[in-house]
């Protein structure tokens, strides 16, 4: 059973505020969805041989965004930096 408190705990881990009604709905829906996921218990172990190789490139300086472009969408900036809330 997923209860109210569990939804609030996960929401705090994910850093997402929920309103009361959402918490209520999510508790019921998560119950349904997570019981549906239970079927994964029956899946056999399968050897997942990867067919991928690492891709490397030389570590060379190349053109990127200008400082102005990088900051253009920021709600707040100061002296050419992003401005965020206090880390306390």
């Amino acid at each position: 059973m997923v209860d109210h408190e569990e939804v609030e705990h996960v929401a705090s881990l994910a850093r997402v505020d929920l309103d009361e009604a959402e918490t209520e709905r999510f508790a019921a829906q998560f119950d349904d969805i997570l019981s549906y996921f239970e079927a994964l218990d029956e899946v056999p172990e399968v050897d997942a041989a990867t067919e991928l190789d690492n891709v490397f490139r030389p570590d060379e300086v190349r053109e990127g965004l200008t400082q102005e472009e990088a900051l253009a969408n920021a709600p707040e900036t100061e002296d050419g930096y992003f401005k965020g809330p206090n880390v306390s």
Partner: peptide, 11 residues
């Protein structure tokens, strides 16, 4: 503070 602000925006 950072965590609360982050969670508030993400509402």
């Amino acid at each position: 503070n950072w965590n609360d602000a982050f969670a508030a925006v993400r509402e």
